[in-house]
């Protein structure tokens, strides 16, 4: 078996704040194979973005990784221990080289006073031995690929001159121009209309196929996940509570939280079923519940509520690909 492109093992990330140490990610493990799309879902604040930023060492200065946290990137038969890359020169392999990131707010990833084109060229020249002319040619070609009309003119414009949809596509173009092995897309379509979202999703799928790259696709929209991901990881309050293939997780969700998310979705083909929200609010990361992290909102704990309140559920493995952190699943309740 070939090693996964990236392997995250027991990642625990805390932030030093005035109110104390905040646990944002707790013993998270997942792999992404070459050419695979892993969808990461969860409510806002569950830790999706900070998990993603860990892969590129982009978290804020007040972050602390626990001993034992490991992120291994396998490129060209070489293992890179990401969290141990301390010097900027060593980090070059990840930042914009092997890994690229697309953000939810495209304005954030373009400098306001530099043209879109110059930023693309700049990035390409850092990561390759290209000449400026070559970099310009590739940039315009990428803008064309993502469906930006009149790319040569657009090349000389600033981000604020682009519409929301165009900015998002320009960001995809910039992120893919260095031909990264892993693309991290953090809510790339959340701020877009469904019509434009459909275009961007289509575009990302095409490019993934063409460049054979892997994607970590972060969203809170299960419909978008169903349409893009091969496998899914569901995150709640810094923990991954369920992972499986997209069919396993969407068609037979094994964790009560995953079922809760699905029950609160409005479905067009079933207008009569009520929308059932997950009761209560997500707890503060400063005040993480004991036992099962989800017990304060779980409607399924019933008889075993006491166990849920005190004992941390261990991942149970239904089969090689479907893992659930819930006491019920351990009782063999779920297929």
């Amino acid at each position: 078996m070939t090693a996964p492109l990236i392997s995250v093992k027991d990642l625990t990330l805390r932030f030093k704040t005035d109110e104390g140490l905040v646990t944002a990610v707790n013993t998270v493990s997942f792999d992404i194979a070459s050419g695979e799309v892993l969808g990461l879902v969860g409510e806002s604040g569950s830790g999706k973005s900070v998990t993603a930023k860990s892969l590129m060492m982009l978290n804020a200065d007040n972050s602390v990784y626990d001993e034992g946290s490991k992120i291994i990137l396998n490129i060209d038969d070489r293992e890179h221990d990401v969290l141990s890359l301390k010097r900027p020169a060593e980090q070059m392999i990840i930042r914009g080289g092997a890994i690229s990131m697309i953000f939810q707010e495209p304005m954030a990833s373009f400098a306001p006073a530099i043209t879109i084109g110059d930023q693309m060229v700049e990035q390409l020249m850092i990561h390759s031995t290209m000449t400026r002319a070559e970099a310009r040619e590739i940039s315009i070609e990428m803008l064309t690929r993502v469906g930006i009309p009149e790319p040569a003119q657009r090349f000389g414009q600033y981000a604020f001159e682009f519409s929301g949809g165009m900015r998002q596509r320009a960001m995809v173009a910039m992120a893919l121009s260095t031909k990264p092995r892993l693309l991290i897309a953090d809510e790339p379509t959340t701020a877009l209309d469904v019509t434009i979202q459909a275009q961007v999703i289509e575009l990302m799928k095409d490019l993934v196929k063409e460049f054979h790259m892997s994607i970590l696709f972060i969203t809170h929209d299960l419909g978008v996940i169903a349409q893009t991901a091969d496998r899914v990881a569901v995150m709640y309050l810094g923990n991954i509570v369920e992972t499986g293939t997209v069919r396993q997780v969407i068609n037979s969700p094994a964790h009560p939280y995953t079922r809760g998310l699905l029950n609160s979705l409005p479905k067009l083909d079933d207008l009569d079923s009520p929308l059932t929200p997950v009761p209560g609010d997500i707890p503060s990361p400063l005040d993480r519940p004991s036992g099962c992290i989800f017990h304060t909102r779980c409607v399924e704990s019933g008889d075993i509520a006491e166990k849920c309140r005190t004992e941390i559920p261990v991942d149970s493995i239904d089969n090689a690909s479907h893992q659930v952190a819930c006491h019920l699943a351990r009782q063999g309740d779920q297929a």
């Binding site: 459909a198 999703i201 289509e202 419909g223």
Partner: peptide, 23 residues
């Protein structure tokens, strides 16, 4: 077009959106 752009929750129904070009 708006209706068909809504991503389906069924992983087996992929890419049937009647795509609306442009903005």
């Amino acid at each position: 077009a708006l209706l068909s752009a809504i991503p389906s929750l069924d992983p087996d129904v992929r890419g049937h959106a009647q795509r609306l070009e442009g903005e």
